[in-house]
Amino acid sequence: MPPDIFDQWADAAAPASPEASDAPIADTTPTPDPAPATPALLRRALQDLLKNGLLEQSAKPHLFRQIAADTARINTLLEPLDLQVKVDDHRGLAFVAVAAGYQPEGDDEDEWTHPLVRRQRLTLEQSLLIAILRREFLQREQEGGLGVPVQLAVESLLPQLEIYLGSTGSDMQERKRLLNLLDHLRAHGVVSDVDAQERITIRPMIVHLANPENLQALLQRLREIGNAADEGTA
């Protein structure tokens, strides 16, 4: 008896069995979605921040806004490195800091605050100039408000240094000493280059560079040394 026409149609529509086909069986196991990539602008902002250690809104407003808006996400990315970003919205400043829970290991504690952050070793003269510049910066902020650029004439710093360091007897040597100190501090992101009008801009990072109590103690100690020297020559 010939096969029923309806059976023939059913056989033609049925899928081929695995035994009858050499084609590989497709893997139907669901694959997890890939983790979302870090947005390009956020990646660029974080790279710039790690490269320079700080980022100012006045110089790179788009990158600063990205960091300010995604601070929590950036800190998550930095957490394995024991680093964090701190944002000073009032002064338009973001900078990298060592995480509070970081614990140095072994002898590294003497030379490193963190494997990726070199401890800033400043001489007495450099620390003194930072203290003077910080005082000037905060005083100008009180007078003009937060976020206002603070500029100083280089010459105005010479008498202040002389109070604590004494006079060398040579205006040229004293100016050279001051310019060398400013050039060193520029590398720490607290002052700009000397411009054509012989002025510098004090950058807002100076507020966060050093502990104010330590700076005040430094100034007090220098005053004591100066007073003792005056009494000895009297």
Score class of each variant (00 low, 15 high):
3 P>F: 05
4 D>R: 06
4 D>K: 13
11 D>G: 07
11 D>L: 02
12 A>V: 15
15 P>L: 12
17 S>Q: 06
18 P>V: 15
24 P>E: 06
26 A>F: 12
32 P>D: 11
35 A>H: 11
38 T>M: 04
47 Q>E: 13
49 L>G: 00
50 L>A: 05
53 G>V: 04
53 G>M: 03
55 L>R: 00
56 E>S: 08
57 Q>Y: 02
59 A>E: 12
60 K>R: 12
62 H>F: 02
64 F>W: 01
65 R>Q: 07
68 A>Y: 01
70 D>F: 07
70 D>P: 00
73 R>Y: 10
73 R>I: 08
84 Q>W: 13
86 K>W: 14
86 K>T: 11
97 A>I: 07
99 A>R: 07
99 A>L: 03
104 P>Q: 03
104 P>A: 04
111 E>V: 15
112 W>Y: 15
115 P>G: 03
123 T>M: 04
124 L>D: 09
128 L>K: 00
130 I>Y: 02
133 L>S: 09
135 R>Q: 07
135 R>F: 08
137 F>D: 05
141 E>N: 12
142 Q>H: 13
146 L>K: 10
146 L>I: 10
150 V>M: 11
152 L>F: 12
152 L>K: 06
161 L>F: 01
161 L>K: 04
170 S>T: 14
170 S>M: 11
171 D>T: 05
177 R>N: 14
178 L>F: 09
184 H>Y: 15
193 D>I: 02
196 A>M: 14
196 A>V: 12
197 Q>N: 14
204 P>I: 06
208 H>A: 07
208 H>F: 01
209 L>I: 01
217 A>N: 07
219 L>F: 10
222 L>V: 04
222 L>G: 02
224 E>S: 13
227 N>S: 09
229 A>G: 05
232 G>W: 00
234 A>H: 08
